[in-house]
Design a protein around this nucleic acid. Structure first.
Lengths: 87, 87, 87, 87
DNA sequence: CTGCCATTTTACCGGC
DNA sequence: GCCGGTAAAATGGCAG
């Protein structure tokens, strides 16, 4: 691997990554747009995000997290309030 | 307000702010330490953070958030899973 | 938006977001592949990541110094007058 | 840590965190006061914030360029040899 | 498995 | 009082 060859290869790697990251950033921008549009239609963005997250998470994980939270709250003498969602 | 006087005043303002922000950053660091120590003692940091947040939030807010989430989930035909805490 | 949520509209929003996030995840996967390939060619992945990060920062804060001077002038309520030693 | 949580220890952790967060919030309040006072003296708050931010960034990425060059050399798997045009 | 880094989410603050 | 954008916090992911 001579210096010149390595430099070309390095440049290629960096540029491929930067290209892909640009595309990724563009998609992130699109997603923001969808949320903004939803907000304009009266939806609550924070809750929408929670919905998306919940759909991604399986119910097993949810139950585990919730059980642990209840354990801590009980130890603190705080009633496990019904209005305490995992996400 | 001559230039020189204003410059002195500006410098003073900036420096006061930077000083306060340093102190604030130090406290943030302390908090991180406490969490790290708790983790070393076997606590789940993520859940601890949720507990702190819940204690800060009044139950009115919690209920509102939870009601909205359930509304969305029902609209999507997703059962309101018990294991879905607000935070 | 109280009462009934327009289920179809909500579902459409959620699905658009999920679709975009899938595409984004695919790109993230591609990026990982490039790094993995680079690693196979003997590059140090951590260093490559730092290079990418620095290049991004670098393109952001080009000519930061001059910007800062102008900001001082603005903060002093002065037009940017070149012949004036401010700070 | 399954089963019973040491309630006293847990409570101690939570309270330490809450105490530190109170102090942090107090500092945030102080900072706001300084900005408010500056504003009363005719300064533009937004610009002041930008000054503070730029000064922070600036102190971070001093000599970023040189760091980047060294990183390229590392990425190429070369010792930092001054007499070598890399990229 | 642990720590770090990046991303993502939340909260804040000033302006309108 | 909302909205936009900016900073802080939190979560997740990846490498070692």
């Amino acid at each position: 691997m001579t210096g010149a060859v390595a430099a070309d290869q390095l440049r290629s790697i960096i540029e491929r990554i930067e290209r892909l990251e640009e595309e990724k950033a563009a998609l992130a921008e699109d997603i923001k747009q969808v949320y903004a549009e939803a907000k304009a239609n009266g939806y609550d963005v924070k809750t929408l995000r929670r919905v998306v997250r919940l759909r991604k998470m399986d119910s097993h994980d949810r139950s585990e997290q919730e059980a642990l939270l209840e354990l801590y709250l009980e130890a603190l003498g705080m009633a496990a309030d019904k209005a305490m969602p995992v996400i």
